[in-house]
Design a protein around this nucleic acid. Structure first.
Length: 197
DNA sequence: GGAACGATCTGC
DNA sequence: CAGATCGTTCCC
């Protein structure tokens, strides 16, 4: 018999508000720190966003710097889409698209604090202690993959089996987040567009 | 057609 | 600190 999941319990104890497309639309460097403390929900897993990076169109480190391609097309879509890319031959990373249609901007989700579905995350992470403290680990823990590229985080939830969105549980973004250089890039390395709790 | 290179992670 | 591992991009 199906018991109440930890997500059900967690949701019922907090006032959750869907983050709207309008909330997400804007320059990635402005939206990125605002996303801190928001909650990512994918299926039975939820986690509080604790580290992000911004990427803009005229940013040499961004996938969109060279213009639109098949791979980065979602980044040019409307704010609120999820841009998922495959890298290093084995990892996926997930971004929230922030620019309006035609503008290639997004915020990379680098780390979340697991809130729900911890057992499932642990299983997907092969029992390792680190569940979602890196962009590829986060995707593995949440089961985010290639087929999620272009999913709409702001559309009304149609898939009740696998909700897929970002919500505000009334925890405000930190007033003084850590700010620093982005990780793992070789261009525009001095741009301080990484934010952390 | 081919080569170089990753917005990373892991184990040594 | 180097290896894994393959899609994407860019150059010839």
């Amino acid at each position: 018999m199906m018991g109440m999941s930890d997500l059900d319990r967690w949701v019922s104890t907090r006032e959750l508000r869907d983050v709207t497309r309008r909330d997400l639309e804007g320059d990635a460097p402005a939206v990125a720190p605002w996303l801190l403390n928001k909650v990512l929900i994918v299926g039975a897993c939820a986690g509080r966003i604790i580290e992000v990076e911004a990427y803009t169109q005229n940013d040499p480190a961004s996938h969109t710097f060279g213009g639109q391609t098949k791979r980065n097309a979602v980044m040019f879509g409307p704010a609120g889409l999820l841009y998922v890319y495959f890298t290093y031959g084995m990892h996926y990373c997930a971004n929230v698209v922030t620019g309006s249609r035609g503008v290639g901007e997004a915020v990379l989700l680098r780390a979340v604090q697991p809130l729900c579905g911890v057992a499932l995350m642990s299983e997907r992470r092969s029992g390792r202690a680190a569940l979602a403290d890196g962009p590829a680990k986060l995707c593995q823990a949440f089961g985010i993959g290639r087929s999620d590229d272009g999913r709409d985080l702001c559309a009304p939830s149609t898939d009740h089996e696998r909700p897929f969105r970002i919500v505000d549980d009334s925890t405000p973004p930190p007033s003084t987040p850590q700010v620093g250089q982005r990780i793992g890039i070789t261009k525009a390395v001095d741009v301080p567009w990484r934010w952390r709790l």
